[in-house]
């Protein structure tokens, strides 16, 4: 009578308390006090006329059902994700940007607040192991020859933004202008958020897909995207592309950056680091 013992969703559900102890009752013995929903004190025991606390264990099925759904979602996620992206990609309203993984960038800042700098007060310094330390204003950077790259952006936390144009001055050009001294082996990047740092080996920094970026998606870099100037390291996870870039310092060894001191890989090639196997972005 009473509670249906349907299938696997109710594996430990005892039959009604009808005094007929059978093997189907569950792993415990009658009369043993335990944490369950069957045996209760006299004070709390419901009398036969009380409908409360009787009937099918729907609550338990809901819990198990949610666990099953969660596991199914975990397995089906790659498929579902592609579906979501397909829908979001055709959405002209941009509302899907508010949905999880709805495409687009996410804002991460490790500092409490970041000043907004513009043409008047933005400065980029190049110093350290160089022959000719230099300071660039925004206009000076804009006056140099620009390179435009269109690559995917891949964040180490999983999100990816396809075919994103970045435009700016190749880092190698600024390094050449400063005259890198022979003992220099690496570059440290500082940011005007006052906290974030990044680093590259000299060989990485000289790649032609590493930019001091001034524009993104064919617009001037906004503050929330690290504007007016950020680093853009196309072949690496996006944490290497330091926002709010204010300093380029040549050093004699790699000085691990902010996230790298917290366990992220220093050589952050997309698909070949941080235990991930994303498709390379360069």
């Amino acid at each position: 009578m009473g509670a249906p013992l349907t299938g696997a969703l109710a594996p430990v559900t005892a039959g009604r308390c009808d005094g007929n102890l059978t093997v189907r009752r569950g792993p415990w013995r009658r009369g043993v006090r335990r944490w369950s929903n069957r045996r209760v004190s006299t004070e709390e025991r419901t009398d036969p006329g009380d409908p409360d606390g009787r009937g099918a264990p729907v609550g338990r099925r809901l819990v198990l059902g949610m666990l099953g759904l969660g596991a199914a979602g975990l397995v089906a996620a790659p498929l579902l994700q592609r579906g979501v992206e397909a829908v979001a990609g055709r959405d002209p309203t941009g509302l899907t940007g508010l949905l999880p993984n709805g495409g687009g960038f996410r804002y991460y800042s490790v500092a409490s607040s970041v000043p907004e700098l513009g043409p008047q007060d933005y400065r980029l310094t190049v110093d350290g192991l160089v022959e000719r330390p230099a300071t660039y204003s925004l206009d000076a950077l804009r006056g140099l020859p620009q390179t435009r790259l269109v690559r995917d952006v891949q964040c180490v936390t999983g999100w990816r933004v396809p075919s994103t144009p970045f435009e700016g001055v190749p880092l190698s050009r600024l390094l050449d202008a400063a005259g890198v001294r022979p003992e220099a082996r690496a570059v440290r990047f500082d940011c005007f958020d006052g906290t974030y740092t990044e680093s590259l080996t000299l060989a990485q920094a000289r790649r032609d897909d590493v930019l001091v970026a001034l524009r993104m998606q064919d617009r001037p870099l906004g503050h929330s995207h690290g504007g007016p100037v950020r680093l853009y390291v196309a072949p690496m996870y996006f944490y290497k592309s330091a926002k709010w870039l204010s300093g380029i310092t040549l050093t004699d060894r790699v000085e691990p950056g902010y996230w790298e001191r917290l366990g992220y890989d220093v050589d952050a090639w997309v698909g070949r680091s941080n235990g991930r196997d994303d498709a390379p972005t360069a």
């Binding site: 369950s36 209760v40 004070e43 009937g55 264990p57 729907v58």
Partner: peptide, 21 residues
């Protein structure tokens, strides 16, 4: 909360669905 008898009794009430539910 599971050490509380009243709490466990309420969990049982929440779990079981009768015809009135």
């Amino acid at each position: 909360g599971l050490v509380s008898r009243a709490f466990r009794a309420d969990l049982r009430r929440l779990n079981r669905f009768g015809p009135h539910d």
